[in-house]
Simulated scan of single mutants.
Amino acid sequence: MDFQAVIDSLPRYAEPLLVTIQVTVASAALALLVAFALGLMTSSKHLVVRTPARVVVEFFRGSSVVVQLFWFAIAMPVILGIQFDYAIAAAIIALALNYGSYSSEVVRSAIASVPKGQLEACTALNFTPIQRMRLVILPQAWPEMIPSLCSFAIMLLKASALVSLISVTDITRMATLIGGQGGGVNQLPHLALILVIYFVLAWLIWNGMRALERKAKRGVGIDAKLPKNRAIDAPAAAAGGGGAA
């Protein structure tokens, strides 16, 4: 394998890498908005609010993200006359709707996990629905959402490689273009390079979300770190209880 050729071609990966990061960040931000909107709607007690949201969630979760990409990039301009100026915009919207629909279940379940006593206290204090959601429910539900949202963010990063199917030049497409020169014999080193790049980006997302989770838990008075003596004290206590028996 000619790794020298890969090193020489590194400057050509700068712009595609920026495209991959832009698609991931923009899709994740939009997906978070979609997730909260659909999650709150599916948590509603009103059938007229809950039913349309459930239909949207099941539609995007039940259909292929690849088909959705082609639909937004190719089918919508032909059938509905909706033309995106850039293919990257269609890719961002398609990925955001797909992963936002999946993440909406994380939002819904986290909201449902808030103890009913907290809601009863809000009623006793005469909180409005907005105050109840902003001051009580979301601060407690948010730390529970972060681990699952982290997984979806990493999945979204990996799914960003699919934008190469609609001719968006990301690092995956650049690797196939450069590696495909000369009959494709030099493609393996370039694929190894983007494998490392995706791993580094996923590692950065994971660490960032872990830091966000610790901050969110501290905000509601939860210590995110396990005390060092807890793992020792528990078996010791169990052994002591067994001896007493």
Score class of each variant (00 low, 15 high):
L162I: 15
L157N: 10
L138K: 02
I79D: 04
S103I: 15
Q83K: 15
P147E: 02
N126L: 00
A91T: 06
Q118Y: 01
A90D: 14
T123F: 00
A124C: 01
F70C: 14
Y99T: 11
A124W: 06
D85C: 10
S109Y: 01
L97R: 15
L97H: 14
S167Y: 15
I93A: 04
V168Y: 09
L149N: 13
S101E: 12
P147Q: 07
L157W: 07
P115C: 08
M76C: 10
A141M: 02
T169I: 14
A73Y: 14
K116R: 10
A141E: 00
E105W: 07
I88Y: 14
F84N: 08
A94R: 10
E120I: 15
M155I: 05
S160E: 05
I166N: 08
L95G: 12
T128Y: 12
V65N: 13
M76V: 12
A159E: 14
L149I: 08
I137F: 04
I146H: 01
L162Y: 07
S103R: 06
W142N: 00
R108I: 01
Y86V: 14
P77D: 13
P129E: 13
A141L: 01
Q68G: 07
S113L: 12
L138T: 10
I146C: 04
Y86R: 15
P147V: 03
A96E: 15
W142K: 00
P143T: 02
V78K: 04
A75I: 10
L95Q: 07
A91F: 09
S109H: 01
V66C: 03
P77Q: 15
A121M: 08
I111S: 01
P139D: 05
L149S: 05
L162D: 13
V114W: 01
S167R: 13
P77W: 09
Q131G: 10
R108H: 09
F72I: 10
L138H: 06
R108E: 15
P115H: 12
S160P: 04
I88V: 12
I137L: 09
A90L: 14
E105K: 12
A96P: 10
V114G: 02
I88H: 12
E105C: 11
A161F: 03
A89C: 05
A96M: 07
I82K: 13
K116D: 07
R108V: 06
I137R: 12
Q140M: 00
L95M: 11
Y102I: 12
Y86S: 09
W71P: 03
I82L: 13
M76P: 12
Q118D: 00
I137K: 08
L135V: 03
Q68K: 09
M133V: 11
